[in-house]
Design a protein around this nucleic acid. Structure first.
Lengths: 89, 89
DNA sequence: AAGGTATATTCAATAGTTCGCATATGTGCA
DNA sequence: TGCACATATGCGAACTATTGAATATACCTT
């Protein structure tokens, strides 16, 4: 039926296709982590984590929710959630 | 249990994450196309298709089978097949 | 052997990604 | 207000990916 938007799929897949981003996304499957938490789990620097989050936010893959001084991140894109479940279940 | 090999997952996902490669991989889900066929479906040049196939072959994602003068490609990596099914079903 | 068809490889130019470092912004609390 | 903590942004250098053009290889047929 509908023609597939390969460019868009590729953009999403590319956003997922990075070890650090996979780590923090997998973490978001189980909880709603703040940036500090991701830093320690993914063993990357704060600016680096923030850069990856910025990329994911700009594509609408994740979204942040404030809890006081913390930014708690969660997966927003349901297709991404399904792909990650397939990958990590 | 097992620690997840994020680097390896990222490598696989990155290989998939390209519009032309997604197109030819989706084609391979349905048939066992030769390079000519991929050229016309993906609207890319022969060398370009071959380059993408080389990348996918080197990662063990696809494999070719000769049929006379043609190289018929199919998806070899079952995890990739599942991810593509999830993506395109 | 020669020519044709199918596919692969190499190289170089360009474009895009990643990351460290420095710095900026925003919020809560004394 | 001022400090501390949490997070974001900007920039540049190093690295990686993508592609076109040219060329190479391999098989089939005559």
């Amino acid at each position: 039926m509908s023609t597939i938007d390969y460019d868009n799929y590729a953009r999403i897949m590319k956003a997922i296709a990075h070890p650090t981003r996979l780590k923090i996304l997998n973490l978001m499957r189980k909880e709603c982590p703040c940036v500090k938490k991701m830093e320690s789990v993914a063993e990357a620097s704060q600016p680096n984590i923030s850069q990856h989050l910025s990329l994911l936010r700009n594509l609408g893959i994740v979204e942040a929710e404030r809890e006081g001084n913390l930014h708690c991140y969660q997966i927003k894109d349901q297709n991404v959630k399904i792909i990650l479940d397939t990958l990590f279940e």
